[in-house]
Design a protein around this nucleic acid. Structure first.
Length: 576
DNA sequence: ATAGGGTTAG
């Protein structure tokens, strides 16, 4: 769509204006269609394009429109390549997150003998930071020192940023303290750096001392606390901050999503809508993830419609969140449709779909999809293999499970994590190979966790093996203070062995250290767009009698139909 | 021109 009322209007203007005036038509909101008209106009009228105009045109393409392919074609058709033009390309590559290409162009530029300016250095430094290239970052720092450019406020900040990304917090701090500054950007950068290193005290101290706090500073500390796992601290800061912008709301929503507190995330989203600040695709990616966590399909569909209607940027993150939401809510077909319509996919997008299939018992389909993924040349990661192995578990194929497990390290250099061992124990256990499962646990390079023991116990239960063995009990007892689930597992083993004394002892320990019986299971249901959370034996809802009446009737109905309750169908869920 | 936000798995 042209931003002008018609193409004719634009063409009229192009005919009557001079080149400099035409260049001012290139604004951040100018469409690519209008741009092409302007470009064509120049190609027609000026046999050789003025180098200033050519640079502005390319810069628009690379930086504003982020059409890096088009920019590259323009770049290749130019023979006068000055620092400005090179920098526009480098900047464009940084913007579309292709730092390697940015660096490639920076090196090419140098090898062609073009002297970089401070803007070139700024974006080259940003490119090195984003791929954590500490060595080259330091080389660039040296160059800036030689040119005296390290006094430049922008470059100084980029250097602090680079050192903080590359985890050289000391170097970052040295640069920050070297020249005292009121510049909020430098303060915000160093505060973030402290949080990244887990140095909460320094971060808070700097925030308290900071002279000119802005919204970004508040957002930085809120995000910092949440990334350190202190969501409630983040929330209390969020509540008292003087003004909230789009990022503030997005940070708070994603904080709750990250801590698996989806209902609270959705509440914040509702408050955001009341505040009148419009969400963007970053916000929506998190909101959709919250919907996926609680199975809020209606809400998810509404977000999907909102995103399309308001033309929010449909990128990989948003697309993946949509696929995940539909898949987790059981709409595999819709998930597949969204997946197929994505203009760009990455390994996470594939993972979301794979997990969806595996989770809903479509193990064969998941393995077919995995093959397809490989044939597309997408490199799987550790998350992929969690999905693949759980698919193997669903189809009950020990051979396929071992085969994929072996491929991890051999073909992809992915060292199996405890989750992968957990899946293998599950696969072996379900097939009745209890001894093999136990041996695998013994051979693991890490200490087994409660999930691994849980998988083994589930297997014992399925195969009527009441004696799980002393080693399992001892393994669990070792972890008792650390993990709430152990109490549940152990109590049930003791009960199965009729060791009621031990059961009572366990209950006492739990009471002593303040664990209430057990962490209640929680499920949620969405009614008319409101998410309700229900805990095991929850009687807080005013209509709890009616609710239990209905669920009991459903259970009875399922049993009549021959369904045997087996809660372990969910990935890793513990059978208790 | 620089700083603050996002997806899958656990």
């Amino acid at each position: 769509m042209s931003c002008f009322s018609s193409l004719c209007a634009l063409r009229r203007q192009l005919k009557t204006s001079n080149p400099i005036k035409i260049i001012t038509l290139l604004q951040p909101w100018t469409s690519m269609e209008d741009f092409k008209q302007i470009h064509a106009h120049f190609l027609r009228s000026n046999r050789i394009m003025d180098s200033f105009i050519a640079a502005k045109m390319l810069e628009f393409c690379a930086v504003s429109a982020q059409n890096i392919d088009y920019a590259l074609r323009m770049f290749n058709n130019t023979d006068q390549r000055d620092a400005y033009l090179w920098t526009a390309m480098i900047r464009g590559f940084v913007k579309v997150r292709m730092p390697e290409k940015a660096i490639e162009f920076y090196c090419l530029m140098r090898s062609e003998g073009v002297q970089p300016n401070k803007f070139t250095f700024l974006f080259a430094l940003k490119a090195y930071s984003s791929i954590y290239n500490y060595q080259e970052g330091m080389v660039l720092h040296g160059k800036l020192l030689k040119n005296g450019l390290h006094f430049d406020e922008f470059l100084r900040n980029a250097l602090i940023h680079m050192y903080s990304k590359c985890r050289d917090i000391m170097a970052a701090r040295r640069l920050f303290y070297e020249i005292p500054t009121d510049n909020a950007v430098n303060w915000n950068t160093i505060i973030c750096a402290c949080f990244v290193c887990g140095d909460i005290e320094s971060a808070q101290k700097l925030f308290d001392e900071m002279p000119n706090k802005n919204v970004e500073s508040w957002n930085a500390v809120i995000s910092g606390y949440s990334k350190c796992g202190l969501v409630d601290v983040a929330r209390s800061l969020f509540d008292i901050m003087p003004e909230k912008d789009l990022v503030s709301w997005s940070v708070m929503i994603s904080s709750y999503v990250r801590s698996r507190r989806a209902a609270e995330a959705l509440n914040v989203f509702k408050d955001m809508q009341l505040s009148g600040i419009q969400p963007d695709s970053v916000t929506m990616a998190s909101v959709l993830s919250a919907c996926a966590q609680v199975g809020a399909l209606d809400m998810g569909r509404w977000i999907h419609a909102y995103v399309s209607k308001n033309k929010l940027r449909h990128d990989v993150f948003l697309g993946t969140s949509l696929v995940d939401m539909y898949a987790k809510c059981g709409c595999i077909d819709t998930a597949l449709q969204v997946f197929n319509s994505m203009p760009k996919r990455n390994v996470s997008s594939w993972n979301a779909l794979l997990c969806g299939l595996a989770m809903h018992g479509q193990g064969d389909e998941a393995l077919v999809l995995f093959k397809q993924m490989e044939s597309f040349g997408v490199v799987p990661n550790d998350v992929t293999f969690v999905a693949v192995l759980s698919a193997c578990s669903h189809i009950g194929s020990v051979d396929e499970g071992w085969k994929q497990f072996d491929r991890m390290d051999k073909e992809f250099s992915i060292i199996p994590k405890i989750e992968h061992y957990g899946c293998m124990v599950d696969i072996l256990g379900r097939a009745g190979l209890i001894d093999e499962a136990k041996n695998l646990i013994k051979s693991m390079p890490m200490e087994p966790n409660v999930i691994v023991w849980g998988a083994l116990l589930t297997a014992c239960k399925i195969h009527g093996d009441t004696d799980v063995g002393e080693d399992v009990v001892r393994g669990l007892e070792k972890m008792v203070p650390a993990d709430g689930w152990c109490y549940v597992l152990l109590s049930n083993i003791y009960a199965a062995r009729n060791q009621w004394g031990s059961v009572e002892k366990m209950r006492k320990t739990m009471r002593n250290i303040g664990i209430k019986e057990k962490v209640p299971g929680c499920s949620s249901v969405e009614v008319d767009g409101v998410v309700h959370e229900l805990f095991v034996n929850d009687k807080s809802h005013p209509d709890w009698r009616d609710i239990y009446e209905v669920t009991n009737r459903i259970n009875n109905h399922l049993e009549v139909e021959g369904y045997v309750s087996n809660p372990s169908w969910v990935l890793y869920n513990i059978d208790e």
